[in-house]
Structure formats: C-alpha cells, structure tokens
C-alpha cells in the first residue's frame, strides 16, 4: 500500500487528473449494439429510430442538467420548436433533409438565446416553474396559431427528399434508422468535445460552486447561456429528426411529458456522463414500448416500479453502477483511497 502510494507520488499524472471521455469498451459496445440492431431486429427499426432520437434528446438534457446543473423541465420546448421548424421548412422552403435539421437547430438555439438570460437568472424551483411556463406558452401558441402550426392537427403532408439525393426514406425505417444514428454520432462527438474542453470544465465548476466561480472572474451567466443554447440546439435537432422521419409534428411534442420522460431516462442512466443518456433512454423507451404492448392500461405502474428500484439501488444510474463496480475492483486490488499515507 505504502509503496504504491509513493510510486504514485513520484510519477503523478496531472494530465489524467483532468476528466476526459476517451474511447473505451462502453463506446465500442454501445455503437456495436446500435449498428447490430439494424441487422438483428430489422422489424423493430421504427422503435429503434425513436430510441436513437430520444437518446439524442436525453443527451441534450444531460448537457444542461448533468453538466451545467440547470434543472430545467422545459427541454421539450426546444424539441417541439425544432420539430415545427423542420416541418415548416419542408412545407415552405425545401424538402432537402439536412438543411431541415439545421433549421430546427437554429430556431431552437434562438429560443435558447432569447429565454436563457431570463431563465438562468434564477435557480431551483423558480427555474423549474419558468421553464414549465415557457413550454406551456409555446404549446398554447401552437394550438392557436393555426396558419403557422396547423393548430391541433399539427403539421403534416410534407415530403422529405432522399438524403444527399441518394438514400430514400422507406416504410421500414431502414434509412431513417441510419440517418438518426449518423446524426446522433455527430452530436455525441460535439458533446464530447465540448464537455472535455476548458468551457466544459468551467461549466462543471459553475455547477459545483457558482459563487466561487464568479470570484475567479468568470462571467457565469454568459457561460450558462452558451451551454443552454447548445443543449437547446441539440434538442431542436432531435425534434427535427422526429418531424422528418415520422412525417408529422403535433402539439404533443410541446408538453411537459417529453421533458419528463427524458429526465426519467437520465435518472435511470446517470447524470453528467454522456453515456447515461444512451443507456437510460434505451432502457426507458424499450421498456415503455414492451410494457405498453403487454398491458396498454397499466404499464405506467411497471414504469413506476422500475423507477423506484433504480433510485433505491443505483442512485447514480446504470453508468454509476458500472463505476462503483470498477472502484470496488480497484479497492480489492489495493489501489483505493490510501488517505493515511499522505
């Protein structure tokens, strides 16, 4: 024990002390499962596409809540707005899909920049209430502004061109699945670059101790607005994807439920770890789908039980469970916390 700790003191790794997401077994596993599903369960690609999009949406929520400590319940607003923007774009501008995603991202980002300065002035319960209120206002707007949003019917009847003019969307969701997977991969790379960056570290610092961060001379409100906008844009892309692959966007995307489901996914998967969104959203949406198929009336009961078990036995989510297991093994190997030696 003593020799081990001395060895560590002689060759300390400052670099490794900075948290960073590196390619590891979990990465390989997740992406292999995602690609493998296409071949193994080709009849479930519709569900698979939904899962991928919801992973993207949950990932965007993890940036805000898990990394930035912005306890929002209004993430659905970005999702809905992004979806409406993409549908509107397809109906009125062009059916080209990639530009539709960009439109969804930009409109959602705009919503983030406009509402961020108001929302991020507050914390805790006030922040939750304001984000809920903004979502409700947008929902109300979507219902009343029929000429833009189609009112209660939503926007539909638009066509989406083949991706890059080559890959046609098909009724089996084959193209849609790989489309969503590719977009998710790009978003994941972006999220990973950002959380590893000095900005990402600053964001975690603000989450931990905003007062101290301000005394280090950091304009914390601006940093949070930046994060909120990025997270919103990502949620907007998720909404745009939904609009494009389902050919329909409705008011139901602007309800609290969308945000709530993503939050539950993060509780299941784990906050502030990026992978938590992958495991949590996959577990949540596959479970919901199966449970609803088995018992369409009482499946929420099953979900409740799942949640209670999750909170009781894995407070840091599935990812946290994995980390605890790792730590346990390291302790057994004698390189745990040798506090006394220092």
């Amino acid at each position: 024990m003593a020799t081990l700790s001395t060895a560590r003191a002689v060759a300390p790794s400052i670099r490794n002390a900075f948290a960073a997401h590196r390619i590891n077994a979990i990465d390989v596993g997740i992406w292999m499962v995602a690609i493998g599903a296409y071949f193994v369960v080709p009849t479930y690609l519709s569900l698979g596409t939904t899962v991928l999009i919801m992973i993207l949406f949950t990932l965007s929520l993890d940036l805000a809540v898990g990394y930035g400590g912005i306890d929002t319940l209004g993430q659905g607003a970005f999702y809905g707005v992004g979806g409406y923007a993409a549908a509107f774009w397809a109906l009125n501008v062009t059916s080209e899909p990639i530009s539709g995603l960009v439109a969804g991202a930009l409109v959602a980002a705009l919503l983030g920049i406009v509402t961020g300065p108001i929302i991020l002035r507050t914390r805790g319960l006030t922040l939750i209430m304001i984000t809920l209120a903004i979502t409700s206002m947008l929902e109300e707007f979507a219902v009343t502004a029929k000429s833009i949003t189609g009112g209660d019917d939503g926007l539909t009847g638009y066509h989406i061109d083949p991706i890059f003019g080559m890959f046609h969307f098909d009724i089996y969701f084959r193209t849609a699945y790989f489309y969503a997977l590719a977009v998710l991969a790009v978003a994941f790379v972006v999220a990973r670059i950002v959380v590893n960056s000095p900005f990402g570290l600053t964001i975690r610092g603000i989450r931990e101790n905003p007062v101290r961060m301000r005394l280090l001379g950091v304009p914390i409100r601006n940093r949070l607005i930046g994060l909120f906008t990025l997270s919103g844009a990502m949620a907007g892309v998720a909404g745009a994807l939904t609009a494009q692959v389902t050919g329909l966007i409705g008011v139901d995307t602007l309800t609290f439920l969308v945000s709530g489901n993503a939050l539950i996914s993060l509780i299941l998967g784990g906050f502030g770890r990026l992978y938590g969104a992958f495991l949590g959203a996959a577990l949540f949406y596959i479970f919901s789908d199966r449970a609803a198929a088995i018992n369409p009336f009482h499946w929420y009961l099953g979900l409740g039980v799942l949640l209670i078990l999750a909170v009781r036995f894995m407070p840091n989510g599935l990812i946290g469970l994995g980390e605890q297991f790792q730590l346990f093994r390291e302790r057994k190997q004698g390189r745990g916390l040798d506090r006394g030696a220092s």
């Binding site: 900075f18 960056s197 000095p198």
Partner: peptide
C-alpha cells in the same frame, strides 16, 4: 488538479474555449 486548472483557465481567459482540453 481540475480545481487549480479552473482557476488558471479563468486567469488566462481560457474558460470560454469549447474545444481542446
């Protein structure tokens, strides 16, 4: 190290840089 790195990043105005590490 991250605690100290944060302070150094803030002092050198690196805190807004969203890439690199």
């Amino acid at each position: 190290a991250e605690n100290i790195g944060l302070a150094i990043a803030a002092a050198q105005s690196l805190d807004a840089k969203p890439w690199g590490s």
